[in-house]
Design a protein around this nucleic acid. Structure first.
Lengths: 331, 331
DNA sequence: GTGAAAGCGCTAACAC
DNA sequence: GTGTTAGCGCTTTCAC
């Protein structure tokens, strides 16, 4: 049905080997042969079947990326960066969504086992170190966005602890002393680290806060709303809030606004990740920016070099974050 | 290096055919053979190489989806729905981003030519009808979100004209007579249709608006800001605005708010698409909701049946939209 | 510079 | 119920 390399060879009056050589720009092929082959390819509208090529070469030129959700601009931007780096190397990115459940994530890793992809990047994985290490023994994988304690595998993240520290410091430097934090119960290392950095900043500044200023729970919008509702009903209200994610910060702003509290002047709020909507929100949201596209490009490049150059880089790379102050902190 | 079906056959003391049969649950295999094969598979930690299988079967079980941008929750949700339907049928979704340029989109269609994928869904394509029709002759493709005039291919969209009409009607029903529209110069059929529906509603209601109430331009945030700035500086200000997308509506709200105009009470604003941030924005944004997940599931199912059942459904399916009123229209 | 042929891992037709 | 074998489309070694 479909035109194959054989058809081209026959029509061009050469062997399949010659066609293959022209296709791959390899070895010595006479100018005449090259010309006739190229013309025939065009005439027959031939496109090489990658299944044959890939089976023969034992590669797919596909990289899998697993993301917990498809609706987070952080991931979108990272994938965008990956795609950029992948395209340069002739690779394609396959994406899938795990919904943050290990079962789905594991199932999607089948693509690694059945050779549908040459490697995988896990964004915000929920797998444990042991699973990841076993995986890394036989396949090329990398973590991005979210590290895993004890995982000995290529990892590209920001320094979340430092990010949390810097966020808190930016509030402290504005004179705030009554600072609350909206954190999560999640064991995600990034959350934990951001929280840790926050407390380190407070300690360094000689500020101690009561437990009432600490609200933990889910990672979703409602959690941010509830936290803020509680903070603002306290006798001694905080003057600033650090939310470990922008979604939580947006929720906090919404709730504060609904309660008649002017965010920016009466209450400073800063989030984390610098998602796209930070600049669109009312007020605009201060945040800690991850260099997403760069992280995507970087992790992809490193992974590809592990795949192709036989390097086996399992380093832990930390990229620079940037505290970006906007209206929600009165800037 | 990797363990193959041959290794399993040898270790299990059967032929590769038997292993293959067990693998595919096909034909008659004795219980004893099934058992020993399965045990051997587990023991050797064997996973079939899909490259071999796919080459043999001439399928990949991959569907390509091309999206203009990865940062639009509309697309994310549609893809999520597609992924759901694909998984059921044993297919995977490969995504790529075109940035809305025909060159990139065309390049990504290579995956169709080189048999990396069995079919493709184009979200908000920028290709013309001729290109699409030629493509459809040889490959399984579908359009979603954005139709193309003259394209004879499986298409799944909402009735944008009716959506625009309903959005305008919801404003008219609230008593608004001075209604402005933020539209785009883009030739995207969805935009044009939404605008058309808007004017039909006005005409039916016997409302005629001056050209000053019509602002056209790009599709981005700044466009919404500029449009609103102009509207609100008019002698005779509009009391309501219809924006052909939620991003434009959000921008309009931001600008109005910055100019001290109370959105909801003094100025009603409604958008289109019902993106996730509509419910998070301050105020929450009224919009016309597309049934994204359902559209994704539907288009995927139809495409898969074209691929596998030999049907060749080129219908134009229209899904039901829902006008969702929130604070930005005073609800 | 070119061609013949082996073989990547798998499935399926055919024979028994 | 099971095994043998051809062959999917391609690359690459080897021989000339």
């Amino acid at each position: 049905m479909s035109v194959t390399i054989k058809d081209v060879a026959k029509a061009a009056g050469v062997s399949v080997a010659t066609v293959s050589r022209v296709l791959n720009g390899s070895a010595n092929v006479s100018e005449a042969a090259t010309k006739v082959v190229n013309e025939t390819i065009k005439a027959l509208n031939y496109s090489p079947n990658f299944l044959g090529r890939n089976l023969r070469k034992c590669v797919t030129n596909n990289i899998l990326v697993i993301q917990p959700s498809s609706e987070h601009s952080l991931y979108s931007k990272i994938i965008s960066g990956m795609q950029e780096a992948a395209a340069v190397a002739g690779y394609d990115i396959i994406t899938s969504i795990s919904n943050g459940t290990p079962e789905i994530e594991n199932r999607q890793l089948n693509m690694l086992y059945n050779r549908t992809v040459d490697g995988a990047v896990l964004l915000g994985t929920v797998l444990d170190a042991e699973t990841i290490n076993t995986l890394a023994e036989n396949y090329h994988i990398a973590l991005c966005c979210e590290g895993v304690e004890g995982a000995d595998v290529l990892t590209v993240i920001v320094d979340d602890e430092k990010g949390g520290y810097d966020a808190a410091m930016s509030l402290i430097n504005k004179g705030h002393r009554k600072i609350a934090i909206i954190a999560t119960d999640s064991k995600a290392i990034s959350s934990v680290q951001r929280e840790k950095g926050f407390f380190r900043a407070l300690e360094e500044a000689g500020i101690s806060i009561s437990d009432e200023y600490i609200y933990k729970g889910d990672y979703d919008y409602d959690h941010g709303v509830n936290a803020t509702k509680k903070f603002l009903s306290l006798e001694d209200k905080p003057t600033a809030i650090f939310a470990v994610s922008d979604l939580l910060a947006a929720a906090a702003i919404k709730q504060a606004t609904d309660m008649g509290v002017k965010v920016g002047s009466e209450l400073a709020i800063i989030g984390f990740d610098n998602i796209t909507w930070c600049e669109r929100f009312i007020p605009t949201i201060s945040s800690v920016a991850q260099p997403c596209e760069e992280m995507g490009r970087f992790v992809c490049k490193k992974l590809l070099s592990n795949i192709n150059d036989g390097t086996n880089d399992k380093s832990y790379y930390t990229m620079e974050h940037v505290v970006t102050l906007r209206q929600s902190t009165g800037d």
